[in-house]
Simulated scan of single mutants.
Amino acid sequence: MADRPTEARHPHSAGLHALSGPDALSRLLDAQLAALSMVRPAIAAIDAAATAAAESLRGGGRLGYAGAGSSGLMALADALELAGTFGIPPRRTPVLFAGGAGALLHMTGAVEDDPALARADFRAAGLVRGDTVLCLSASGSTPYTLVVAALAREAGVTVVGIANVAGSALLRDSDIPVLLDTGPEVVNGSTRMGAATAQKVALNMLSVRMGCLLGHVHDGYMVNLVADNAKLTERAARIVAGISGCDMDMAKHALRQTGGAVKPAVLIAAGASAERAEAELTNSGGAIGPALAALNA
């Protein structure tokens, strides 16, 4: 373990406890910014991962997330946001988190070393050929995550490995390796800090790029949103108005006709009937831009 960069001593660790509050926090912020900078060299790999994820979902498959500890929490956070941001239902994005729901309230280290648990979770997730799974581990050697990755490969699932140690087992055994080489932590070994920060940002980028590829983002708007509460209704109306150029009253009227679905509401607000809106979205594969162009042709 001492040979892992994530377990090495950070040059700014010494004397951290004795610094003034502002000085200690400045060191911590500098370390977070340095970790964040290591996402940029991974952009090409993140793009490849986003493309694989989009292809799986577009083809009717699923996108799984797997991890333990802090890496598992980063995976879980991204997965949970996909429904609200992009309208992707949770059944399409299974999460394999070492220890399950119980570990969210009381995290224990033992679960990440349990291969039987990983095998059971993989079977329960039901991932199959054509699916993609994002496997996260700061060290790239977490047993739970490695077992999930191995089982996924055997099943023909595309494995995206996201790790913070170059040459680690997870990266070697992944179809799409994503290295976030964040190095030592200011608090020795606390990978919930720099490593997890880089993982979270990489996942943010990956899922947004995936949303763009799926046609769920248009001009920065979340167009696959389905409004099911007051806050989302207002947001959806602003999206419809922003894209179609109509006023808020017209936008809300269009949303009432679509049950809160933004994409067809945009086309209705732009002058389409409900039937034509659905037809144009079917023809465009759900992408707003081509559907609007066809409507205005």
Score class of each variant (00 low, 15 high):
G72I: 06
E275D: 14
R4A: 10
R172V: 07
G99S: 07
S137R: 00
G100W: 06
R4C: 04
A261L: 13
A241H: 04
T282W: 12
D219P: 02
A49F: 02
S139D: 11
R276G: 00
P41A: 06
D3Y: 08
V157Q: 04
R40Q: 14
G109L: 01
A237Q: 06
A83R: 12
L134D: 01
S70F: 01
A196R: 01
N224F: 02
R238K: 12
V217W: 07
S137D: 05
G259Q: 07
R119S: 13
H10E: 08
A18N: 10
T51E: 15
V128Q: 15
G64I: 07
K263G: 00
V186D: 03
A166C: 10
P22K: 13
L281M: 07
S56F: 07
A53K: 06
G102I: 04
A163D: 11
A272Y: 07
H253P: 10
G211W: 05
M248L: 15
R40A: 15
P264W: 01
I43C: 13
V217A: 00
A53I: 09
L203T: 05
F122N: 02
I239K: 01
S26L: 12
A68C: 10
E55F: 11
V95T: 03
Q199T: 00
V186C: 05
G130A: 14
T258E: 05
D228K: 10
G215A: 02
